[in-house]
């Protein structure tokens, strides 16, 4: 038998809000109408807490600390959260400045930094880097898609996203989820005639062609995987979405259309 979830009251920037115990400060903030900035956060994934943009100051009793809002769980009552104190403003700007120095080549990061008044930095800039190591691509591939085709390599300043051994990897099914979640767009997917290419992972794979109209609509690997994972009728996955819809439509409406035609003939 599970215990009922406690409701906790806290204050965010002076605004009181009540949330179930275990809710993160980020979620509590949204409930209170306060939007805390994030970069590595995605609603479909567990918080990773690495970009450190969402830092806030929390006070309970006499203890004050700086924590990330995306994964700090609210427990008990009396938590006082400050999302924009002087200390946080200073720290957050430095974090963003550090990101800017790394990803100065990324227009997305430059624009993001500009929102916080950070337009340039005297820190050493890296050339040609657009990946901020938010981990969204790695996490979505492992946790949502279940393929774990990509991961990290090395550690520290050498940490980077990678395919194992720098070779094309059959675990990549070309679904494009990584492309979709990447905040800077540094993962590029190109649909070439007959093939899908994700350059960053050296993925190159043939398309599956619709049995009816011949249009390419997904990678062979992706469809094979779906076939194995889902108890779907084989034929369902061999038609492109449009032909599939028509097929279904005919199957559902077919008798009615036939009846109507027969009726009209009769009339």
């Amino acid at each position: 038998m599970s215990e009922p979830v406690r409701i906790c009251t806290l204050q965010i920037d002076g605004k009181p809000v009540s949330v179930p115990e275990g809710t993160t400060i980020l979620e509590a903030g949204r409930k209170a109408g306060i939007e805390i900035p994030t970069l590595c956060h995605h609603p479909a994934l567990e918080p990773y807490g690495v970009c450190r943009v969402c830092i806030v100051e929390v006070k309970k009793g006499r203890r004050v600390r700086v924590v990330t809002a995306c994964n700090f769980p609210v427990e008990g009552d009396g938590l006082e959260v400050s999302t924009n104190s002087e200390r946080i403003q200073k720290d957050r700007r430095t974090v963003i400045e550090l990101l800017l120095a790394r990803c100065f080549s990324s227009p997305v990061i430059r624009e993001f930094a500009a929102r916080f008044g950070v337009f340039d930095t005297d820190l050493q800039k890296t050339e040609g880097e657009e990946c901020l190591l938010c981990g969204l691509c790695v996490n979505v591939c492992r946790d949502l898609i279940g393929q774990a085709a990509i991961g990290f390599e090395s550690r520290g300043a050498d940490r980077k996203t990678a395919v194992p051994f720098g070779r094309p990897n059959e675990d990549c099914i070309g679904c494009g989820a990584c492309v979709y979640v990447c905040p800077t767009g540094c993962i590029k997917m190109e649909d070439l005639p007959g093939e899908r290419m994700i350059d960053r992972w050296m993925s190159l794979m043939p398309f599956f062609k619709c049995r009816k109209c011949g249009k390419a609509f997904g990678s062979v690997r992706q469809l094979e995987l779906l076939k194995n994972r889902q108890p779907l009728v084989r034929t369902y996955l061999e038609l492109c979405p449009e032909c599939r819809a028509m097929d279904l439509g005919e199957a559902l409406l077919g008798p009615t259309v036939a009846k109507k035609a027969a009726y009209q003939d009769a009339v």
Partner: peptide, 21 residues
């Protein structure tokens, strides 16, 4: 510390690197 940092979070990975620089 830069050699031993896991590299996951921005302040340690980028910050220690810049301080060292």
């Amino acid at each position: 510390l830069l050699e031993e940092s896991c590299g996951k979070c921005t302040p340690c990975r980028e910050g220690v690197k810049q301080i060292l620089g």
